[in-house]
Design a protein around this nucleic acid. Sequence first.
DNA 1: ATTATTGCAAAGACTTTGCAACTCC
DNA 2: GGAGTTGCAAAGTCTTTGCAATAAT
Lengths: 139, 139
Amino acid sequence: MDENNIRDILIEKGLKITPQRVIVWDALMNLKDHPTADHIITEVRKENPNIAVGTIYKTLETFVEQRIIERVKTDKDTMRYEVVMDKHHHLYCAESGKIDDYYDSELDEMLKEYFKNKNIRNFKIEDYKLQITGKFINK
Amino acid sequence: MDENNIRDILIEKGLKITPQRVIVWDALMNLKDHPTADHIITEVRKENPNIAVGTIYKTLETFVEQRIIERVKTDKDTMRYEVVMDKHHHLYCAESGKIDDYYDSELDEMLKEYFKNKNIRNFKIEDYKLQITGKFINK
DNA sequence: ATTATTGCAAAGACTTTGCAACTCC
DNA sequence: GGAGTTGCAAAGTCTTTGCAATAAT
């Protein structure tokens, strides 16, 4: 897809451009959702069965360190990942384990205002995210 | 400590009162924070080295199912647990992995108002919790 | 040429499971 | 007495690691 993109990112971060990293990135692009490592491994190996599982884990770890992607908090599941993006919140379905992104700039604005004038004792706020739990309704 | 408490809870949930369950509960009471299974196992075994690890895991699972405790979302760590309590939010320290509770009724009220008039497409909201990331400051 | 990265397989951490023995109601 | 629980050890799942071989700058 937009392969230049990841190449630029890797250069910027001072990481070597390897086929493996590009392929893992492409898999992340294809898997829009919040894939587990296992989803990513399956996706990668569809086309490249030769890439080692350990390499994929190491690549994900590297991406997380470099803030190219983020781990997503889950409360039961195994770890999930997502590409770092615009500010958003998460919808969790307790039943299915599905996670969706939730964008709401009005909410963001409100929280920003709120925390501008609010200090938490002994804590320096860097970011916040709302985890909304509930159920997805059939469309 | 307040042992009647857990006995009542177990009765209410239709679970048998066993020494093991009471002991795990006591450990949870002693470990205020957001203990991992391993913390809990260590705490339990201090006094009762005879209780099986599998039993502790099973007990925690049962408590979660019965909504006596909750799993806490972590983004790297192993699973953590907490006793179900009043509405609160979480402060996460990325550096140390420490999690603290954050109570803020003003914030709760504001969010409640906000979501009263806000529908999310295809999603039925049941609860929400703010995860605030940042750093704990030395006191 | 130098240094980072990969593949592989083994080890590690954490959690679950199967089942006979045992407890609680 | 009977259903629900426990202990135990083995198996499972997910992830990390060590290191020689290999590839990127």
